[in-house]
Amino acid sequence: MNVDKILKRYNSDRENLIQALHDIQDNTEGNYLRTGDLKKAADYFHMSLSEINGVVEFYSMFSKKPRGKYIIRVCQSPPCYIKGAFNVLGELKNLLGIDLNDTTKDKLFTLETTSCLGACDEAPVMSVNNIIYGKLNTEKIKNIIKHYREEKRGK
């Protein structure tokens, strides 16, 4: 979707900045915020580039680098840690053949870590583009990855 159009959905109060950035990122192939779009947003919200950059850099959900279609974020906070979060991470690395913060060659998956996702009663937990999956085990992880690989093929 066109960035100007996304911006126009909001009035130019700075209050709407973070919401607009979400929308822009979600609608950008590669799940990230492009330089040109940030410039447009800065203009739209009457901010300097450094201010908008400071905001983008602060929040862990935003990225300035292109990422995969699906962003897998593995929770590393204590409750998930207790339930084997590091194993989950290890399995995902193996399964996807990438390291942390890398993207698979087919641009399908990016592997990240995150702090608590608020589903700790289901620990260990990860999210794929903000769908939260809990009670992870080897098989479930495999299924989830398979699910997304197929979803991609289906399209």
Binding site: L38, M47, S48, L49, S50, E51, G54, E57, F58
Partner: peptide, 28 residues
């Protein structure tokens, strides 16, 4: 009244960056 620089990063990684955090010399 310029606002060319701001904090970048968070936590222990917090730094100062100009414009979009690229090189200072490329900024305004």
């Amino acid at each position: 009244g310029k606002g060319i620089i701001d904090f970048i990063g968070r936590g222990i990684e917090t730094r100062i960056g100009a414009d979009l955090g690229d090189l200072w010399g490329n900024s305004a």
